[in-house]
Design a binder for these strands. Structure first.
Length: 543
RNA sequence: GCACCCGUGGCUCAACUGGAUAGAGCAUCUGACUACGGAUCAGAAGGUUGCAGGUUCGAAUCCUGCCGGGUGUACCA
């Protein structure tokens, strides 16, 4: 609908001879300002060389004189807005699109034949996922859903490293617990892992092998068993929130297929590598960064930046059109170096979108809990899901902008769950379903001409809201900010609840009005359900 | 010190990416079901958007400088 008005506006502009580059049409938050509004006169005033109000009235006159059936009323308002009311019949007619498209309503094909790789979670298998990982996981997954609704082919990828120092320490920690089971008390190594799950892993090894590995602290069985056990645990948790990865990328493969060496050589060929103090440096300053970085230590071991560069290169070589990285704020400093390197290697770094989310501060008894996987004082994502449920968990993490430092009060989480907006939205959906159940006619045979009875302001506002859904989806594919969708759904639900309380829908004395309104309710149901689907939240028919 | 993020009613957060009277939810107060589910609705109260300048028709949003909080700033990942 907005597009249609935009077309009318554009053709009017070109007839007058005004520039058509800067045209913004918005849905005003204040319904008194009409169905759509544009600030065109103000932002183009300088270029045209006339006052905004002058421009506005010229445009309004032009559109009025062309007598378009789409427009009911168009006005110029100081300091230079143009407000439009759409013909109500045209508006209510659009509901048909929603009903017809049904579960596809809101989808578009801007990403058709394009593929996107989204890397997220990427936690190394050193322990269960924390609440912090949860934010990353749900943000990433929702971004995937959004892109899918915009027609992209999505690959969800989990990158991990099972070779580093952390993993070695993990294995050693398991060994200590294993020895404990054999009656020997050893010290947990410096920086070792203290979580209870380490004991579980040790128990598994003990149960199957008894004392076979006594004294054999470096045996790879400790690390390997731990990795398998932890990954199983992680996948179980991810499954609980409905998340499934398409691929797991092991950092090791970059070494096995020589991508690491190849990357160093190619950077060298670009004259971006030099040796200093026995280490190998990447000349990041040449790419606009403020300092050079070591990529191979004097010990011969690469720093994490090198495999990261090689990994991103691999992503490009797999020919994705869009590459999204979802990182916590701790990667703030690292990724620009990676992008600088990628750019230097002649890849189109604009394809990469990096989403940085701030950390989650967990409050327990009003005190922040300092989370550390090693120290095992983290709050696991798994226990959070068990406590508040998958829907609330998902919704909670995307309803806020990723830029906020999220405070998660554990004690409040449970209490608040009754007042959580997710229930508000789900209830609106359940309400729609309930009304459709109560409706005694046949949904499919509603005469669409009855829609012209939807004349109340509150109805056109609801219809307008429903029709902006596809636009919300489209826009979120650009911003990659899922909270736009949850905000939208909360607003839509509010409009609906309000309508419900004010107007009787099912009225046996007025069959035709009932049909029109039930049609509207059905459309509302579809939009809410689709919106929740994008967020990965269930849309119950009863609660 | 430097880089990035944040600062919005008592609390947790929005604000269509520069638009019109800064909006919700919790908490507080007042109302609303013998008709579609009260997990709801209608209303009240609560604000100098951290502070000070600047940019322009217009700023919570952009720029500069302070103040306060977070994260990072390794030949750790």
């Amino acid at each position: 609908m907005k597009n249609k008005f935009q077309e009318v506006l554009l053709s009017a502009l070109s007839e007058i001879g005004y520039p058509t580059e800067k045209v913004i049409v918005q849905s005003p938050k204040n319904p008194d300002h009409g169905d759509f509004t544009t600030n065109y006169p103000m932002i183009n005033s300088k270029e045209i060389g006339k006052s905004p109000m002058e421009i506005a009235s010229i445009i309004v006159d032009k559109i009025n004189s062309s007598g378009n059936e789409l427009i009911d009323k168009i006005d110029s308002i100081p300091p230079g807005f143009i407000n439009v009311k759409i013909n109500k019949d045209m508006l209510s007619n659009q509901l048909k699109q929603i009903i017809l498209s049904d579960s596809d309503y809101g989808k578009n094909d801007t990403g058709k034949n394009k593929s996107a790789l989204i890397e997220f979670v990427s936690a190394n298998p050193t322990g269960p996922l924390t609440v912090g990982h949860g934010r990353n996981a749900i943000l990433g997954d929702t971004v995937c859903n959004i892109l899918e609704w915009n027609g992209f082919n999505i690959n969800r990828e989990y990158y991990f490293n099972n070779a580093g120092r952390q993993m070695r320490v993990l294995g050693e920690s398991v060994y200590v617990r294993y020895m404990e089971l054999l009656g020997e008390n050893l010290e947990i190594p410096d920086g070792g892992y203290e979580g209870l799950y380490i004991k579980d892993i040790a128990k598994i090894i003990f149960d199957t092998h008894q004392e076979k590995f006594k004294g054999d602290s470096s045996n790879k069985i400790f690390k390997q068993t731990a990795e398998e056990y932890i990954f199983e645990d992680i996948e179980k948790t991810l499954k609980k929130i409905g998340l499934k990865f398409d691929s797991f990328f092991n950092e090791n493969t970059l070494y096995d297929n020589n991508d690491i060496d190849r990357t160093v050589n190619d950077l060298k060929a670009k004259n971006l590598i030099y040796e200093k103090d026995g280490a190998t440096w990447f000349k990041a300053t040449a790419a606009g960064r403020d300092m050079d970085r070591v990529i191979i230590k004097s010990t011969g071991e690469p720093t994490y930046r090198l495999p990261d560069i090689a990994y991103h290169r691999d992503k490009f070589d797999r020919n994705f059109d869009v590459i999204v990285d979802v990182f916590g704020a701790d990667h703030m400093d690292a990724y620009p170096d990676v992008i600088a390197a990628i750019k230097s290697l002649d890849y189109d770094s604009d394809k990469i979108k990096v989403l940085i989310h701030q950390f989650v501060t967990v409050l327990k008894n009003g005190e922040p809990v300092k989370m550390s996987t090693r120290k095992a004082n983290f709050i696991s994502l798994d226990s959070l899901i068990d406590e508040v449920g998958a829907d609330v968990t998902r919704f909670f993490f995307i309803m806020r902008s990723m830029n906020t430092h999220l405070n998660f009060d554990l004690d409040l989480a449970k209490e608040q769950s009754d007042a959580n907006p997710v229930f508000y939205i789900q209830y609106a959906h359940a309400r729609c379903c309930n009304m459709l159940r109560r409706f005694e006619g046949d949904l499919d045979s509603i005469d669409e001409s009855s829609l012209e009875h939807l004349k109340l302001d509150i109805e056109t506002q609801l219809i307008n809201k429903l029709l902006t859904f596809s636009e919300v989806i489209r826009k979120s594919s650009q911003t990659l900010e899922p909270q736009n969708i949850s905000n939208y759904l909360a607003e839509l639900s509010s409009s609906f609840h309000s309508y419900y309380a004010k107007e009787r829908v099912i009225d046996s004395d007025n069959k035709i009005l009932t049909e029109a309104r039930i049609y509207l309710v059905n459309a509302t149901r579809i939009v809410i359900r689709n919106g929740l689907k994008v967020l990965g939240v269930s849309a119950p028919e009863q609660m």
